[in-house]
Amino acid sequence: MKFAVIVFPGSNCDIDMYHAVKDELGCDVEYVWHDEKSLDGFDGILLPGGFSYGDYLRSGAIARFSHVMKEVIKAAEAGKPVLGVCNGFQILLEAGLLPGAMRRNESLKFICRPVQLKVENNQTMFSQGYEQDEVITIPVAHGEGNYYCDEVTLASLKENNQIVFTYHDVNPNGSLSNIAGITNKAGNVLGMMPHPERAVDELIGGADGLKLFQSIVKQWRESHVVNA
């Protein structure tokens, strides 16, 4: 399985994402610059965190119109796994691949620390390696992670089990219903504010994020490799 890490001007978690996939997960991975016009040959798409285009106008608003995003949308429609972390999540929201929008953190402060998440749905291609309701520790680092959507959208997220991760005990940013990560209806696009790529090795404080990447690979192998 081969992953693409999309790099925008201002991305700053791209190297962590690359490292997580290459060295900890042990899969093929390549950086793909934002003005590339093809994602042929990639089986999974990763949108890393950072401050694409300096967060000008709104987080993710300008990145959403880059050339490569047309290909990301095509890949999502084709059912390929697409993971957006932090700024990557914000870009997926702006692109309309996921419902809702981000507001400034309730505290107005940039927060950067490990948080506890609850696995609300372990029946997705991103979360099948976790136990249902398992509490995991993954770091957050953002100033705009205060997820919002209207009541109709929230009801539909709940009804379709699209809420994959919620903040456990403490909600760091004021997000609606403690939402930390959601998928699209089809379940192949996940956006999350916490950084699983920063939690892939006990040496740096925890490896709870690694299972997320392993889940994607397991799903892919089961559907693409004979006798897997």
Partner: peptide, 8 residues
């Protein structure tokens, strides 16, 4: 399309 995010 760009200047405002009509969701919020």
């Amino acid at each position: 399309r760009l200047l405002a995010n009509v969701v919020i």
